[in-house]
Amino acid sequence: MLKINKLHKSYPIGDSSLHVLKGIDLSVESGEMVAIMGSSGSGKSTLLNIIGMLDEADEGEYVLDNVPIKNLTEKKAAIYRNKFLGFIFQSFNLINYKNALDNVALPLYYQGLKRKERIEKGLFHLEKVGLRDWADHLPNELSGGQKQRVAIARALAANPKLLLADEPTGALDTKTSHEIMEFIQSLNDEGKTILMVTHEEDIANMCKRIVRLKDGVIMEDTFVEQVRASQYV
């Protein structure tokens, strides 16, 4: 599904440069649910951004679903992002002047679907996250958990191969966090591959595999017994 080989990335800071990723090797199979952990500055977000094609590595190979991701033009990157990836952000990143349905349907717009089809699919995914009745509401009329669920519906709308979540519960309270995690687990149960960055142990333990990063290298890569979020809800 996803194969990364000797990935390097550094950022220029003034005259010198900061070496953030120092040779990452990672391979994720279809249907996995992986947590990437590490303290701040460990490079976990940078890794996620490179996997999400929001950023490009300086060195190394990255193959996603048998497609080598290299030297992408902006246009090509846009198409790949739209086709392969769904993003879930810590701060939701909904477009605040569009209602829930329009937000969910936006990736479908960039896929070139007709409006009728977009509405149909958008409503289907809102239904899935349990917010069909909230389709007409603007993001600022929704609670944090609801916003994240709309964001998840949006990430699912284009039917991506890989879901990338950057601290999906970082802005939520414990109870809502568990609700969101329960939903993400159910998506994984249906077969979606999920990659998530988090710094919370209990959230990480709800995944099936934990990759720990420190100073730009992988310290530990273990499969764990998944803790079901449903027991807390």
């Binding site: 999400g52 929001l54 902006e74 246009k75 846009a78 198409i79 992002r81 739209n82 086709k83 993003f87 990143n93 909904l94 477009i95 936006l106 990736p107 960039y110 896929q111 949006r154 284009a158």
Partner: peptide, 16 residues
């Protein structure tokens, strides 16, 4: 800026 970033992450081409 942020909105445009979101759109790009969701697959908006530079042309659009």
């Amino acid at each position: 800026t942020k909105e445009i970033g979101i759109r790009k992450a969701l697959g908006a081409s530079p042309k659009s």
